[in-house]
Computed example of a mutant assay.
Amino acid sequence: MHKRLPLLALFLAATALGTSACGASGSTEAAPSTSAAAPSPSSPPSPAAAPAEARKLTGLLRASYLRTIRTNYSELDGISDDVLVEHGNAFCAAHGEALADQAKKTTKELGITPKETVKILGTAHGVCR
């Protein structure tokens, strides 16, 4: 363990430097320096920053999501495709505390265990990101 600690520290430092060099949009361009052209902190975020419409399980994303659930989680076979997609879409759109609230709602509505809910949540986030 002690032999790997310097390597871990180097990796974490490189990751931190790489992350700090990225812009807010997630691009790989270097972060802009502070200048007069930078938006003020009080300006509202642009509507293009979080397109809710783009985070839906439709078309190939829907098929991939359902195939992953049906292939890997046989305990969820009793739930219809439409219900799985409905809850998957809710997970794709939820962030932060809303994600936890949606997980509780899904567990209650579908009558499944929290472990089964995590399988739906993880698959949805894996497909819609």
Rank of each mutant, 00 (worst) to 15 (best):
E29M: 14
E29G: 15
G88P: 13
A30T: 10
S74Q: 15
A52C: 06
A103L: 12
A90I: 03
K115G: 01
L99K: 11
V118D: 12
K104V: 09
S74M: 08
A52S: 07
G111Q: 08
V118Y: 10
D81C: 05
T58F: 02
P39M: 03
L110N: 04
G78S: 13
A100R: 05
T58L: 00
I120S: 06
T106C: 01
Y73C: 02
A93F: 05
A94Q: 03
L57V: 01
I120E: 06
N89Y: 03
N89Q: 10
L121S: 06
L76P: 10
R70L: 03
S27G: 15
V118K: 11
G26V: 09
Y73R: 03
L121W: 05
L99V: 04
A54D: 12
A24H: 14
K104D: 14
Y65R: 02
A94I: 06
T107D: 00
T19F: 11
I79H: 04
H87R: 12
E97R: 10
P44C: 04
A49F: 07
A24C: 07
K115L: 02
Y73K: 05
L12S: 03
S42K: 11
E29W: 07
H95D: 11
A36E: 13
T15S: 10
S46M: 11
E53I: 12
I112N: 03
A50N: 12
A103I: 11
E109P: 02
A48D: 15
P41A: 11
P32R: 06
E109C: 03
T68K: 12
A24F: 13
T58I: 01
D101F: 05
A9S: 12
